[in-house]
Simulated scan of single mutants.
Amino acid sequence: MPLHVYQDRKRLKWDNGFMISEHTAMMANEKKEREFIWPAKELMTKDEIDRILYEAKLKNRAVAIQKEEMNEEGLYSPDVTGKIQGYDELGVFISGQKVDYDEIRSVEFFEEKKWSDLS
């Protein structure tokens, strides 16, 4: 009985996009987050912003800050969330990102969900 030499299909077998379901679900979730339209929050006064930032720093609470800037489509970016890591005369540092005081449109306390929370 003659042996048949296996012919590898080379790239053909990989071009069909074999992906595991977890990866596909993750990509779909990221696309949904990118397409989400962040609504404009109520414009707060400087005193209201200062009061909430002061209390958040004092009590070590997380905040969600909506910046005044918009993207090229005229939509707001996602909120900057986290605990205040530091501050200077120009702004605050949250989650490794500096947010200048004059960029803040709205700030509110934020409840961080634990990774173990299934709800």
Rank of each mutant, 00 (worst) to 15 (best):
P78M: 14
V99M: 00
M27Q: 13
K31T: 10
L118S: 02
S119C: 04
F93Q: 03
D100N: 14
I84H: 01
L43Y: 09
Y87F: 14
I84G: 03
N60Y: 00
E103P: 00
Y54F: 13
P39H: 04
K13W: 07
R11W: 12
K31F: 12
D47M: 09
D102Y: 09
F110R: 07
K41S: 14
W115M: 04
G74R: 00
R34F: 03
N16K: 13
D88W: 05
A25K: 14
K83W: 02
L75G: 02
W14F: 10
D79A: 06
E55V: 11
K13H: 08
D50V: 03
D50H: 12
E55F: 12
E55K: 13
A40Y: 00
T45I: 06
D102G: 06
R105K: 14
S95N: 14
L90H: 08
I52E: 00
V80S: 02
D47C: 04
L118D: 01
A28K: 12
V99K: 00
H23Q: 13
F36R: 10
T45K: 15
E72F: 14
V63A: 07
F93V: 07
S77L: 15
L53H: 11
T45F: 13
A28I: 04
A40E: 11
R51E: 14
R105M: 10
I37D: 06
A40K: 09
D47A: 13
F93G: 01
D102M: 08
F93L: 10
G96D: 10
D102L: 05
S95W: 10
K98P: 03
E22F: 09
L90E: 12
I94Q: 07
L43V: 14
M70E: 05
V5A: 12
Q85A: 14
M19D: 09
M1E: 11
K67I: 07
E112F: 07
R34A: 08
K10E: 08
E55R: 15
N71Q: 08
D117W: 03
K98A: 01
K98L: 05
K41I: 05
A28G: 04
F109H: 00
T81N: 06
A40I: 03
E73R: 15
G74M: 01
K10C: 08
D8N: 13
M19Q: 12
W38N: 10
F36D: 00
K59E: 15
L53Q: 12
L53W: 11
K83I: 01
Q7N: 10
W115F: 08
R61H: 05
S106A: 04
K114N: 13
R61W: 03
Y76W: 06
Q85E: 15
V92A: 06
V5P: 03
M70Q: 09
K13S: 11
A28M: 08
K113Q: 12
Q97N: 07
R61Y: 06
E111R: 05
L118H: 01
D79K: 05
K31L: 14
L12R: 12
L58C: 12
E103S: 06
P2A: 08
T81R: 13
I37G: 02
K59T: 14
G74S: 02
E89N: 04
E69K: 02
G74A: 01
V63P: 09
L118F: 04
W38A: 05
Q66P: 04
Q85N: 13
L58Q: 12
M19G: 09
V5H: 11
M1D: 11
E108T: 03
S21T: 05
K41Q: 15
D50W: 08
R61Q: 05
Y6E: 10
T45Y: 12
F18I: 07
R34I: 05
E42F: 04
K67G: 05
